[in-house]
Each structure stands twice: as structure tokens, then as C-alpha cells.
Amino acid sequence: MSMDYREYILDHYRNPRNYGTLAHPNAHAEDSNPLCGDQLAIDLLIEEDLVKEVRFQGRGCAISQAAASMLSEMIEGKSVEEVVQLGKDDVLDSLGIPISPARTKCAFLSLRVLHRSLALAGLEKPIDNDEEDQ
């Protein structure tokens, strides 16, 4: 499977949207990929069941950082209910390129951190980590 580093992916990698931290987030989570050291932290400000603001910080490959940047754009202004529903297919759709099996962990790192932040804030059920083992 050939991965295709499209221009918009490089743009999100080099100019990430919503990069940084929030002063007073009410949802936060962070995680790293132990195999490659990719890191990601997400801050959310949720008001009236809407994701009012989102910021992320991280370091890692173009796939992991572009996926985080795109995900941040995707959830801004969305209802918590909609964000809870977001899954791997939504991330793959926004990346728009085939992701080789060895790189899926990179692509889904931000999604995992996003759901963890909502779970820690009591807004969704904690995710089952076994799901990662398929």
C-alpha cells in the first residue's frame, strides 16, 4: 500500500491548526505512542454541550500531527454528542490517503487522546483499550 503525502497533509504538519494550550480547559488528556515516541495532548473548552475551543500540542510524524490538526478543525463548534460518535473512519476520510498498517497508530493517536479527554471529563464511557489490538 503506497502512502501519498498530499500537499494538505504537509500543510497541516508544518502549519498545525489550533496548536497550543488553553488557559482553562475543562477536558484534557495526553498520550504517547511508546514504540515511536509520538506525543499528543489535547485541551478542550466545553460550554453548553458544545466544543467551544480546542488546542493540541504534540510532536511526531506528519501523519500523526496532520491527523491531530485536522481532527481539531473537525470538532471545533461541534456538539459533544457528535464528537463522541467520531471514529477511525472519520480520521481516515479527512486524511484522504491510504494508511499502511504500521502507521495506523500514528493516524489514530489524536482520536484516542480526544476520546480519553471526554472520558476523563465524564462525557463518554471510557474506551476499551483492547480495541487497539486488532
Binding site: M3, Y5, G60, C61
Partner: peptide, 24 residues
């Protein structure tokens, strides 16, 4: 440059069949 080693390893693998290691 600013190419993350993982991206570099993926590109080398897919474009020219070169297996290198990337990471810590």
C-alpha cells in the same frame, strides 16, 4: 530537514524498497 524519521522510513520503504529503522 523537518522530515520526521517515521515519514522518512515509510517513504524509503514504499518508494525504493529500503528498510531502515526510525525511532528512539
Amino acid at each position: 530537514g523537518d522530515i520526521h524519521p517515521h515519514d522518512l522510513a515509510s517513504i524509503l520503504d514504499q518508494e525504493v524498497g529500503v528498510a531502515i529503522r526510525a525511532g528512539h
